[in-house]
Amino acid sequence: MTDMLFQPYRLNDTLTLSNRITMAPLTRCMADDDLVPTDQMVAYYARRADVGLIISEATIIRADGQGFPNTPGLFTQAQIDGWKKVTSAVHDNGGKIFAQLWHLGRQAHSHYFGEGTVYAPSALQIEGTLPRARDFHYEMPKAASHDEIAQLVADYTQAAKNAIEAGFDGVEIHAANGYLIDQFLHFDTNRRDDEYGQTVENMSRFALDITDSISAAIGKDRTAIRLSPAAYTHIEIDARDKEVFDYLLAQLSERDLAYVHAGIFDDSVVYEHLGGKVSEYMRKQFKGHFMAVGGYSPNQAANHIANNDFDLIAIGRPLIANPDYIEKVKTGQPLTEYNVDMLAELV
């Protein structure tokens, strides 16, 4: 049954993937203190280049987007040059790789970038401490002004241009998992009363502005986006969110992007306000190449692809545990079970 996974898949005239398995973005915190990719990262990605597409770990678009230690960036020449080594190694091994573009919004912290401002759609603070810096509490964010929003769009776009300079085959806009763009898309975190809030069109505006700007800069064929319609982390579900994503996914369906990617940890969860699982909801709403994720075994993924439930499957933790995942699945070998201690291993 898994033979379905190993067939080439054509995204567009620019990109055909060697198989339908993609590597999910996996934050590993392996960059150096200047957020430059390291030699360990080169080896890590090169070993997994036989998947149809690697999606890089989330990569920040500018300094004030950081909320985890040693996450790579794409806003300095040194970072671009460091990524060139990664993309060259992936290409030399026959692979393709997209950069996932990231700004954490209110999950960012000035501990990482010094004196500065944490931005969000609304001035709503998260309770608690940072996941990898427990001595630091989340800060009160500033509701971004119109000029600051325009600058963010420009910085996302520049990061996309930098990604192409660095040799990436395209970019995935990280608009999921409770980070900056996702914060605009949910009523819990977006309390604005201007053209970026209150209505589904306004709440979708920031995501669409970024998508359109990046598409114009590098091509829609090299532009993708990841979304979390169900709310994911640090966001409370509001049934009205469905209307936002109904509108957003309809708009994205008209843009002929490389793909849309679900952002969910466990896709077996049923969400009443979405009428089912995240992948089921997104497949109904989005007319284009759709990538699912969320705990699928190879056999489950193959069955769903055969049923046209999604086109591509992103694999996360099993690819940390099994850099030879493709070969093992092809030959029916047992997979090494993931455990958290593996996060200390770089490759």
Rank of each mutant, 00 (worst) to 15 (best):
K85Y: 11
F113Y: 08
K284D: 01
L35A: 11
D3C: 08
F286Y: 06
R226L: 03
V270L: 09
M140Q: 15
G52C: 05
M203E: 09
R226K: 10
I60T: 04
Q198M: 14
N308M: 08
G295T: 07
M140S: 15
R106P: 09
Y271C: 05
D33F: 13
S213G: 09
G197E: 06
E327P: 03
N303Q: 15
S122V: 10
N303A: 15
E57S: 03
I173W: 04
S204K: 03
I225C: 03
M30I: 10
K284H: 08
E272V: 08
D311S: 04
H174G: 05
Q66M: 13
H109A: 06
Q77A: 13
P229E: 00
Y325L: 07
H137I: 00
G197V: 10
S122Y: 05
R226G: 05
V200G: 10
K85E: 12
T38G: 03
F6Q: 06
D13Q: 14
V36F: 06
E195H: 14
V153D: 01
I181L: 11
D267E: 04
F187L: 12
R132L: 13
Y179D: 07
G95M: 08
A302M: 08
S215P: 04
G105F: 03
G295A: 01
M4W: 10
A78F: 11
P8K: 11
A154K: 11
A239P: 05
I173Q: 02
R28D: 04
V269Q: 07
D209E: 15
E201S: 09
L15I: 14
I97S: 06
A150E: 15
L11F: 04
R192M: 10
Q107F: 10
T233F: 14
G275I: 05
V42I: 14
T22K: 11
P37Q: 01
N190H: 00
I320V: 11
Y325D: 02
G197H: 05
G67D: 01
V260S: 00
A216I: 01
S145N: 10
F113K: 09
R226N: 01
